[in-house]
């Protein structure tokens, strides 16, 4: 009997074990910030991500596993700009965790202090699911990645001063490699300058700015509203007058509308990753984006 009890309690302890704690528990709302933390902090932190690379981070629920992750986090790294507005406030409320609340060192909103593109001139939901703060998809601008990396490095050092030197070295190493890589990518994609694109959803303004692409239209009639026949018809007429060079969409988005327009016009569809899962790296993400763009440009 005693043995059974002992085994049971062992099982319970395993099920709910706090586990061996790394120095810092980091919860990233999106995996791109998670891999950046991994890059900058290595084994000094334990990183988890609330979303996967192929998920739309807007449509997530504050499910039990996320509440327990928020409860255990020492640092929360999120995009902000209302991307997580449907679930992050609830998660923060339910976590009972003071360290990650707004205004605490454990709360890092990466778009804060960043000049965002695409601030709406008019706030009206008939315009679709608009983000009042501006377009939140900043991970497609290498310069902004460097800015976020610096913020992250500082925040890690503040939360874990014993390892501040370590984070400093890692940060400097990353910045050097990132700058070189970004120059390389830009050079390889030089030929894309001035190309005209149609995008599915407004995910790519930062990429467009970086590579000097010109965005002609979106397949969605309004942000977050699925493409309609009427809208696609208009796009087809416009495309026949002025043929775009490619149709861009994120690889998790439904490509039916893009394929339809592509079939009618012969314009290639380019599916790009918007993020990368934990264990990967931003170098991989950008490498993939560059390869796919080059393939389409050929």
């Amino acid at each position: 009997m005693m043995r059974l009890l002992f085994r049971l309690s062992l099982l319970l302890a395993l099920l709910f074990s706090a586990g061996a704690r790394a120095e810092l528990n980091v919860l990233a709302c999106e995996p791109e910030w998670g891999v950046l933390v991994e890059e900058l902090a290595g084994d000094r932190v334990k990183v988890s991500s609330a979303t996967l690379a192929r998920q739309d981070p807007h449509h997530i629920q504050a499910r039990p596993s996320l509440i327990s992750k928020a409860r255990r986090a020492d640092l929360l790294v999120c995009t902000g700009a209302e991307l997580e507005i449907g679930w992050l406030p609830l998660l923060l409320r339910k976590s009972g965790n003071g360290k990650i609340q707004p205004g605490q060192p454990g709360n890092l909103i990466v778009t804060e202090g960043v000049e965002l593109l695409g601030k709406p001139e008019r706030l009206d939901r008939s315009m679709g699911d608009v983000h009042t703060a501006g377009n939140p998809h900043i991970q497609m601008d290498p310069q902004l990645i460097a800015v976020v990396a610096e913020k992250l490095q500082q925040r890690l050092a503040l939360l874990d001063p014993d390892n501040a030197d370590f984070y400093g070295q890692k940060g400097a190493y990353f910045q050097t490699r990132w700058r070189q890589a970004a120059e390389g990518w830009k050079k390889r994609l030089q030929s894309l300058q001035g190309r005209q694109v149609i995008v599915h959803h407004n995910n790519w303004p930062y990429l467009a700015r970086w590579l000097q692409l010109e965005q002609l239209a979106t397949l969605e009639p309004k942000p977050g509203v699925a493409p309609t026949t009427a809208h696609l018809g208009k796009l087809l007429t416009a495309s026949q007058k002025q043929l775009p060079d490619m149709i861009l969409l994120a690889d998790y988005q439904n490509d039916r509308a893009a394929r339809w327009l592509s079939d009618k016009t012969g314009v290639p569809v380019v599916k790009l990753p918007l993020s990368v899962d934990l264990g990967g790296s931003l170098f991989e993400l950008y490498g993939e984006v560059v390869e796919r763009l080059l393939q389409a440009a050929r």
Partner: peptide
């Protein structure tokens, strides 16, 4: 670090509006 601390102070003041759009 001093800069971050300063930013945090500012963030604290503006915390409520950052959280609620």
């Amino acid at each position: 670090l001093q800069k971050v601390n300063k930013e945090l102070q500012q963030a604290k003041q503006g915390a409520s509006d950052a959280a609620s759009s």
